[in-house]
Nucleic acid binder design. Structure first.
Length: 590
RNA sequence: GGACCCGUAGCUCAGCUGGAUAGAGCGCUGCCCUCCGAAGGCAGAGGUCGAAGGUUCGAAUCCUUUCGGGUCCGCCA
């Protein structure tokens, strides 16, 4: 049977309905659901099936519900089924069926909740930071959400490819090269000041962080003063860009990417593939994409309307190469070429997506910062156009993270060079706390990252609370001598409501994986684990009051094994969930 | 001016893609414990789900309008 007991019971419901209503077509039951009722008093599960098919069956839902309930009573899993309200059927499961989930969990171990393989490969693109400096807190949230989402989709049975798109082709990278060149001149001992240098270059000196110092030193090591122009006033000075630009740019991007990969490794985030924007352009992917769209009549030369309301000062009508994004739901058509003929960021990203489609993905998912929100529709339009509307693009937007310490906000500014790096954050609170905390909020909600709370050992801190539950499980199992063969332990001793509630919670894990993956919402895993930990701690606390509920019972080896099975299963489900989040479970606190 | 996201308990947030009497933690109130199965436990008060219409058996959830907050808006990525 399916690991998902809700899906399992839904099968029972639909089979019963087919018997009751043989004349209905098979798809009449598609909208029928079996889910946990809000009100626990209503039982373990409730189905709306009678409400959903009542109209098609031309029967009053309440009557149908009564007949359905009667049938369901005969199912071996069901202790009680009763019609309720406007046509629900409430189902209470037999306790031995609930207990029987434990062997299933223990047999699967950390794989519990793993969905059956799904057809079609899914590409998840995340992080994709410019290679212009170390990762900071903002990147970090996208990295964690993306990595956990990829893990979640894999858990749900998808074949997932984790991808990083390197934005190494634009003006930012040019500015970066100029900034690195400044560090090179410094390494050679120039007396030029930072401000004097900023005057000499286009756009000014944008990246002033000292993380470029090693790049300058490396350039000086490899090239000596060959990339500079001797100058009588301040020693080594700036040479013509054609003498050094390509070399400096390449070296700098390579070193920045190495640094970003190190940062990602420190966070435990991994990618299967890194795609370079510059490489895509160099191999002509942009031209191919444009030709493909042009072949469908989706490219034209035209002039856009000025934006309504606030018109930019320097706005003037300009003829551009435009993509008919409006044919696919966007508000306006979007430009593909800059005036120098190179692709806009959008155009290059279309090339990126053409590349993905050519690699045969059935679904594309992106994790972007909320500042890219306005960009979603045009990209979806492009993917729809390139794929003939067959491949969906889902975008998960992550909102800003405000880091707080001692109640004070900590601000960051990447280009100024003074900001909280990912490394700072990891050094301060640890990788696992960073990852878990980043998932304790819906991606699309702003988040306050409280450095003090995250390391606090209290109920307020979900990281601690969940890890503590796992540590307690492990502590008990160690004390019991690491028992084996618990999957075959007799379980009759488990009858306390708190024990059964814990099993019910664990039994909901496969269903949660499925639903969270479909909704692209990894934060649900964190909330589930928090609830699971609460159920476990509750039982633990009851054991402090009532010795008969303790896990290890002197003189009752059978009852002890039943409870150890419960504890081992709890530990397994916590590990299963933490595994999706990329958080390592701990054996003991501290 | 327009697009997108968000408005749920005093605070921070969930709410399982439309289900029944809307939940959790913190804070507050009242009891209990001070136990290494430690880094507390139990119970209670607290809500017209921003507002107004609509869709239907049924709406915090979907649609329209509106108020408030955020993000963004032609060759930045």
């Amino acid at each position: 049977m399916s690991q998902d007991i809700f899906a399992h019971l839904r099968g029972r419901v639909i089979a019963a309905l087919r018997e009751l209503l043989p004349e209905l077509p098979g798809d009449a039951f598609a909208r029928a659901t079996v889910e946990p009722p809000r009100e626990a008093a209503h039982g373990d599960m409730a189905t709306n099936a009678a409400l959903v098919v009542g109209k098609a069956a031309r029967q009053p839902p309440q009557k149908l519900a009564a007949a359905l309930a009667e049938r369901l009573m005969q199912a071996p899993e069901v202790a009680e089924a009763a019609p309720a309200g406007p046509g629900f059927v409430n189902i209470r499961l037999r306790e031995d069926f609930i207990r029987a989930q434990l062997p299933a969990i223990l047999t699967a171990g950390e794989d519990y909740g793993q969905g059956a393989p799904k057809p079609g490969r899914v590409n998840v693109e995340y992080v994709s930071a410019n290679p212009t400096g170390p990762m900071h807190v903002g990147h970090c949230r996208g990295a964690v959400v993306g990595d956990a989402l990829a893990g979640l989709l894999a858990k749900a049975g998808h074949d997932v490819t984790r991808e990083y798109y390197i934005n190494d082709a634009g003006a930012q990278v040019q500015a970066l090269a100029y900034a690195a060149y400044w560090r090179y001149l410094q390494a050679l001992g120039t007396t030029l000041t930072e401000d004097e240098y900023a005057q000499l270059i286009p756009g000014g000196l944008q990246y002033r962080g000292d993380y470029l110092v090693p790049v300058g030193e490396a350039l000086a090591r490899h090239h000596g003063d060959a990339l500079a122009e001797a100058n009588t006033v301040h020693g080594p000075g700036m040479a013509g860009p054609d003498r050094w630009f390509a070399e400096v740019r390449e070296t700098t991007v390579a070193m920045m990417m190495a640094m970003i990969r190190d940062d990602l490794a420190a966070l435990g985030v991994r990618h299967d593939i890194f795609v370079s924007e510059a490489a895509l352009v160099a191999e002509g992917k942009l031209d191919q994409a444009e030709a493909k769209l042009a072949g469908q009549g989706l490219i034209y030369r035209g002039v856009l309307e000025p934006p309504k309301g606030k018109t930019p000062e320097d706005w003037e009508p300009r003829e551009q190469t435009l993509f008919r994004a409006t044919d696919f739901g966007d508000e306006v058509d979007r430009p593909l070429r800059k005036s120098d003929g190179s692709g806009t960021y959008f155009a290059n990203d279309i090339a990126n997506h053409l590349g993905k489609l050519e690699r045969g993905f059935a679904a594309l998912v992106h994790v972007w910062g909320a500042d890219h929100g306005g960009y979603v529709k045009r990209m979806q339009a492009a993917v729809a156009a390139l794929s003939g509307r067959t491949v969906p693009l889902d975008v998960v937007l992550t909102q800003i993270v405000h880091v707080v310490k001692d109640g004070q906000p900590v601000r960051m500014s990447k280009r100024a060079g003074s900001y909280i790096t990912l490394r700072d954050l990891i050094d301060e609170v640890g990788r696992d706390a960073v990852r878990f905390t980043m998932l304790t909020r819906k991606a699309d909600a702003q988040m306050e990252f409280d450095l003090d709370l995250v390391v606090q050992q209290s109920r307020d801190n979900p990281v601690f609370y969940v890890q503590y539950a796992h540590a307690r499980c492990r502590s008990v199992l160690r004390a019991a001598g690491e028992p084996t063969g618990l999957a075959t332990a007799p379980l009759d001793a488990l009858s306390d409501p708190a024990e059964l509630a814990l099993i019910r919670r664990m039994a909901a894990w496969p269903r949660l994986v499925e639903a969270a993956a479909a909704a692209r919402e990894p934060h649900r895993v964190a909330f589930f684990l928090n609830d699971l930990a609460a159920d476990f701690h509750l039982l633990w606390n009851k054991g402090r009051e009532d010795a008969s509920l303790r896990f290890i019972q002197e003189g009752d080896p059978e009852g002890t094994r039943a409870r150890l099975a419960l504890v081992a299963a709890t530990a397994a489900v916590i590990r299963s969930g933490l595994g999706v989040m990329g958080v390592a479970p701990v054996e003991e606190m501290r």
